[in-house]
Computed example of a mutant assay.
Amino acid sequence: MPKPIVAVGALGGTIAMSAPGMEAVKPELDAAALVASVPVLEDVAEIRSHSISNVPSPAIVPSNVLAALDFAREAVDSGADGVVLTHGTDTLEESAYFLDLLWDREEPLVLTGAMRSPNVPGADGPANLLASVVTASAPEARGMGVLVALDDTVHLARLVTKSHATAVSAFQSPGWGPVGRIVERKLRLMLRPARVFDPLPVPDVRDIEIPIVQSPFGDDGQWVTAIATSNPRALVIEASGAGHLSIPAADAVEELMGEGLIVVMTTRTGSGSTTEHTYGYPGSEEDLIVRGVIPGGFLNARRLRILLHVLLSSGMTPNQIRNEVQFRGE
């Protein structure tokens, strides 16, 4: 049997960084160098490598992600059975979800990175790249949307988050867990998503002008005035508990929505979902929904920001956006 074909596209990040000795690292390795550093990949698949960019996570912008989407589509259309993208871990979850909203192929698209650079003991990049190629080449991973593979665990892009600043096991799916694991160079897939969403239209390249604000203890809502002066396209609030604001903050947000701004809330806890009818006091989730705030469900603020960007770029009406956010956040 011929080996599967996996295309590897490199975008940069710690997995591609190096430096003499133990000095602070910078991006240096291209896609070919990354693949060459893991010779065992040849036992798993025929590898086709390509360098898309070579930048650290904070430098990734929508144009990089859309270039990666083009690369992945072209690779599949040219015969690849799956695609792997190497990426910095700081913003990997956002790029993965961005791509998940747009990916319109059955073939697996897998993102990976590294928490330790190649010049330090215990570097995890080679193992993560191998795990990702194994996942991308597995027939069982077809039709699951975009996946993230690190530390021999496989996660859905819509659930995974970087939960630790430095640990090798940083990537988790809070409240849900991974859908699969890599054991002896095989994908052990235990779960499949109950729903796979239809892809959304690819947005034009533009800045994501949607701020995220966390509502703290003793919130007087004064941040609303400052945000309004920047003319955002929408606003995402990390509210306390299951979706709660102080009365001053709730009043200020209602005034913003009266001017036509779309406002979506999520929980600031890092896990769980917003609710709709559990609490009924002023500033509670039920009160905020009546005022016009859209509950984000299980989607965290970073994902909601990306989703709103794509929905607004597609020209959806506010009601359509509300329905889409609630549907994807359930």
Rank of each mutant, 00 (worst) to 15 (best):
T166V: 14
P232F: 05
L261Y: 07
S18L: 01
G221M: 00
L261C: 03
A80S: 11
T89H: 11
T229H: 11
M257K: 06
D207G: 02
Q172T: 12
P318T: 09
T91S: 11
F197H: 15
D77L: 06
L147P: 07
E23C: 00
M190E: 14
S137M: 02
G272D: 09
R328L: 12
D124I: 01
D251I: 10
T153P: 00
G145L: 05
F71H: 01
W223T: 01
L102I: 13
V76Q: 06
A33V: 10
A45R: 08
E330Y: 06
V253K: 05
V236C: 10
P121M: 05
R291T: 09
G221R: 01
G292W: 14
E324G: 00
I52M: 07
E209G: 00
A194G: 13
P62R: 00
V160S: 01
Q214H: 08
V196P: 04
G218Y: 07
A239Q: 02
L130A: 05
A10F: 10
S173N: 07
R185D: 14
R206H: 13
R105G: 14
V183Q: 05
T274L: 08
M190F: 15
T225Q: 13
G292H: 09
D220S: 08
H50F: 15
A249R: 05
F327C: 00
T225V: 14
N231L: 11
M17Y: 05
D207P: 05
A226H: 04
A67S: 14
V8D: 06
A7W: 10
D219E: 01
L261I: 12
G296W: 13
L111F: 14
S18R: 03
V38M: 02
P216K: 01
R195I: 15
G292S: 06
D220R: 03
V196A: 06
P139W: 11
S313M: 02
N323C: 07
I227S: 02
V40S: 15
T225K: 12
V236M: 08
